[in-house]
């Protein structure tokens, strides 16, 4: 039994402690907005915020986030920075297939929380998630808008 704080709520889950946070979110808690793409922290589709920092939940053991604040895409609009990011994503029409975009939005939210006015280098360092639809230019444009 683990006690996790997900989107501000305390959740008790019956899982092995080394279960990746991703699968606790998706299968145990039904929070399917966070996506599985690779399972080895390559693609970033599973990005969530742990105490405000972007983490790839597919390789984050659930017991390692006990005592932290985990934020998923489901709560992103309740966060003022996250809400701004979502609006920019909509305005710039970023999504195509959309599968990676939960992770992209979370990565962008984390970046702007830590660096409200990111340089191009900050964006390059903070936005490394893969997108098979190649929405990278739209992502960068939305990020610039959200930080303006």
């Amino acid at each position: 039994m683990l006690e996790l704080t997900i989107n501000g709520e305390t959740r008790r889950v019956e899982v092995e402690g080394d279960t990746p946070l991703l699968w606790v979110l998706r299968d145990t808690l039904g929070l399917t907005g966070t996506k599985y793409g690779c399972g080895i922290a390559q693609c970033g589709a599973c990005t969530v915020l742990v105490d405000g920092t972007a983490m790839r939940s597919c390789v984050t053991p659930a017991d390692s986030v006990v005592g932290t604040q985990v934020m998923t895409i489901e709560a992103v609009e309740r966060d003022p920075v996250g809400a701004k990011v979502v609006e920019a994503w909509v305005e710039k029409q970023v999504a195509q297939c959309g599968y990676c975009q939960s992770g992209q939005v979370m990565a962008a939210t984390a970046l702007l929380k830590q660096t409200p006015k990111p340089t191009e280098d900050d964006i390059a360092a903070g936005m490394t998630n893969l997108c098979r639809c190649g929405t990278y230019n739209a992502i960068a444009a939305a990020l610039r808008q959200a930080s303006a």
């Binding site: 929070l31 399917t32 907005g33 966070t34 998923t72 895409i73 489901e74 992103v76 609009e77 979502v86 994503w89 909509v90 029409q93 970023v94 999504a95 297939c97 959309g98 975009q101 939960s102 939005v105």
Partner: peptide, 12 residues
């Protein structure tokens, strides 16, 4: 505008 873009930006 795409009709699916908000749902795809919010995990829905």
């Amino acid at each position: 505008p795409r009709i699916d873009v908000r749902d795809k930006s919010t995990g829905r």
